[in-house]
Amino acid sequence: MRTTRLLLATALLGLCGAAHAADVALARLDCGGPREAVSVAAFSDTFEHENRKIALTYSCYLVRNGDRYLLWDTGNALDGSDAAPKVSLVDQLARIGVKPADIDFVGISHYHDDHTGQLAQFPDATLLIGANDWNAVTASETPAGFDPKQYAERRARFAPWIGRGKLERVSGDRRDVFGDGSVLMLDLPGHTPGHRGLLVKLAKKGNVLLTGDVTHFHENYRSNGVPTWNTNRADSLASLDRFRKIAENLKATVIIQHDPRDIGKLPAFPAFAD
């Protein structure tokens, strides 16, 4: 009898796990980007791309886990610039009936402006950000190498979480966002001190790896290119090596967030991959 109960319990747990895994879905949101090809010479500190131009894109992602949501990166600001998105994140989410207050977590790959531009539109969400990135954002004085005006604007985007909002300074190798192993923030420093990537485990599509800015386009990914403005070259190379091995071991679909050639790896919003 005891053996029968154990077998039944194991079967039920397996069914629940399968149902839960099937309830995880991933969508791409358009978060801006230059309308024309731009020089990417500065994306390599070894002069690899001196004559290359690419029309980079800015991508954000929505992960649905049951009735909970993670918004991954928030793209460029609605500032009227050439790189500004045509439709805000709030308006895109409204197409599927999701309001800003429905977002449980906003995960930030790193603090750069093209990944945090619309962050302040989600003040009720728990902000997940690398601890070392948070330290850089909230430093009492403008860090070396930062333009004071730009730094003040960046800090303002994080204002809802400075001293009062729901905040988690993510540290360690990985952060299990929903507590079920389906979505992991991965430690990939180098581009910034607290840079993170995202692993999403989908029942049908399989494992999906979102790069953040561990790399920016296919050519740099193939050659381990390091942008001139990365905060630590050795960490950048180590993170690229780790990312590549994770992708190989998990047979993951790699989505380079800035490369327009990867947009088609997910269905067009409002559709989700599951």
Rank of each mutant, 00 (worst) to 15 (best):
T3H: 00
T3P: 00
T4E: 01
T4G: 00
L6V: 00
L6W: 00
L6F: 01
L8R: 09
T10M: 03
L13R: 10
L15E: 07
A21I: 01
V24A: 07
L26N: 01
L29T: 10
L29W: 10
C31Q: 08
A37N: 01
V38E: 13
S39M: 01
A41D: 12
A42F: 12
F43G: 01
H49Q: 10
E50L: 14
E50Q: 13
N51T: 13
R52Y: 05
I54M: 03
A55E: 06
L56W: 02
T57R: 14
C60F: 09
C60Q: 06
Y61W: 13
L62C: 11
V63K: 01
R68F: 02
R68A: 06
L71C: 03
L71M: 06
W72K: 04
T74F: 07
T74H: 11
T74D: 04
G75D: 03
A77K: 01
A77F: 02
D79E: 02
D79L: 01
G80F: 02
A83W: 03
P85E: 05
K86I: 07
K86C: 04
V87I: 13
L89K: 00
V90M: 03
V90W: 02
V90K: 12
Q92D: 02
R95Q: 09
V98R: 03
K99D: 12
D104H: 10
G107T: 06
I108M: 13
I108N: 08
I108G: 00
H110F: 06
H112V: 15
H112G: 11
D114L: 10
H115N: 07
A120G: 15
P123S: 11
A125E: 08
T126G: 04
T126I: 09
I129Y: 08
A139K: 07
A139D: 09
A139N: 06
S140F: 11
G145Q: 09
F146I: 07
K149Y: 04
Q150V: 12
A152L: 10
A152K: 10
R154K: 14
R155M: 07
A156E: 12
F158N: 03
F158Y: 15
I162H: 07
L167R: 00
S171V: 06
S171P: 05
R174G: 07
R174L: 12
R175V: 11
G179I: 04
D180E: 09
G181P: 06
M185V: 13
M185K: 08
P189D: 05
G190L: 05
T192S: 15
H195C: 13
H195E: 15
G197L: 11
L199C: 12
K201F: 14
K205R: 15
L209D: 09
L210F: 15
T211R: 02
H218Q: 15
H218D: 13
E219N: 12
R222L: 14
N224H: 14
N224T: 09
G225W: 09
V226H: 02
V226C: 10
P227C: 09
T228V: 15
W229M: 14
A234G: 13
A234P: 06
S236H: 13
L237F: 13
A238W: 07
A238N: 14
D241A: 15
F243E: 11
F243V: 14
F243M: 15
K245G: 09
I246F: 14
K251V: 06
K251G: 13
K251E: 14
A252M: 12
V254I: 15
I255H: 05
I256E: 04
H258F: 12
H258M: 14
G264W: 00
K265V: 02
L266I: 00
A268E: 10
A271P: 00
F272C: 08
D274I: 11
